[in-house]
């Protein structure tokens, strides 16, 4: 370990990931304080998902360091990082399609609890996310939005200290998005959260500080209204996703 002691709950130093010739993540220094609800935005291919995958050990960095809660986790396997208290919802639904929604939640909950505790936790998540209508159905048969909810539920059921959500509101209707935003604010009372989103209405609803990725680098990091009125940010987004 070189340099100063790690800051915040999550810190990356000069983090890099190269795929062939593509610098997907290209020297990212990122610091997240405990208790934040941070939004991560940027055009398609900016490296947001790659950044999340690096932090959760799904892929190994080409260079640079990752610290979670004071531990260097740059070379950790994903289950080790999960055990330290990081939960993630990937961009593509990443669930157990052949199992019922309840079994999905149970597998998440039982890792962090004893048998009775897991059962209670599962019921609590079902109640909180209003999954009651379809907990008995196979997740593979559910609508895209419902599968997202199940996955969010799985992340919650483990009660991680840091939650990473990659486009949680994709495939959801307007009313579901509002519910998701409310849920995130509520979760944020006890948990640090980073959200990747393209939907600016959604971001405005929840965000405080926004980090903008562009071509694998951090382009801006500031309060939401400052970022959204920044000409360079608008420029980057131009013709891709409209910045309202």
């Amino acid at each position: 370990m070189t340099g100063a002691s790690p800051k915040g709950i999550l810190e990356t130093r000069d983090l890099r990931k190269v795929f062939g010739g593509v610098h997907a993540v290209d020297g990212v220094d990122f610091v997240l304080k405990e208790g934040e609800l941070r939004c991560l935005i940027g055009p398609n291919g900016a490296g947001k998902s790659t950044f999340f995958k690096l932090v959760t050990g799904q892929i190994q960095p080409s260079d640079g360091q990752i610290f979670f809660d004071g531990h260097e986790v740059s070379a950790h396997a994903s289950h080790e990082i999960a055990r330290l208290g990081v939960g993630i919802k990937n961009q593509k639904p990443d669930v157990f399609d052949g199992l019922s929604a309840r079994e999905n939640l149970w597998l998440a909950a039982q890792f962090a609890h004893d048998k009775a505790g897991a059962r209670r936790q599962v019921e609590e998540v079902i109640e909180r996310l209003q999954l009651g209508g379809f907990v008995h159905r196979l997740v593979g048969e559910l609508a895209h939005g419902q599968r997202q909810w199940v996955e969010i539920g799985m992340v919650m059921a483990r009660e991680p200290r840091l939650i990473l959500l990659d486009e949680p509101s994709a495939g959801m209707g307007q009313e579901e998005r509002v519910r998701t935003a409310e849920l995130l604010k509520e979760l944020n009372r006890t948990t640090t959260i980073v959200v990747v989103e393209h939907d600016m209405q959604f971001i405005k609803r929840i965000a405080d500080i926004v980090t903008v990725f562009h071509r694998g680098k951090v382009l801006r990091e500031a309060k939401v209204d400052v970022v959204l009125s920044d000409p360079e940010v608008r420029d980057v987004y131009l013709g891709r996703t409209e910045v309202a």
Partner: peptide, 18 residues
């Protein structure tokens, strides 16, 4: 049940901490 989970989606099992 974890074995079944591995059959269904090994990455997710890992991300849950197993």
């Amino acid at each position: 049940r974890v074995l079944v989970g591995i059959r269904e989606n090994e990455r997710r099992i890992e991300l849950l901490g197993y």
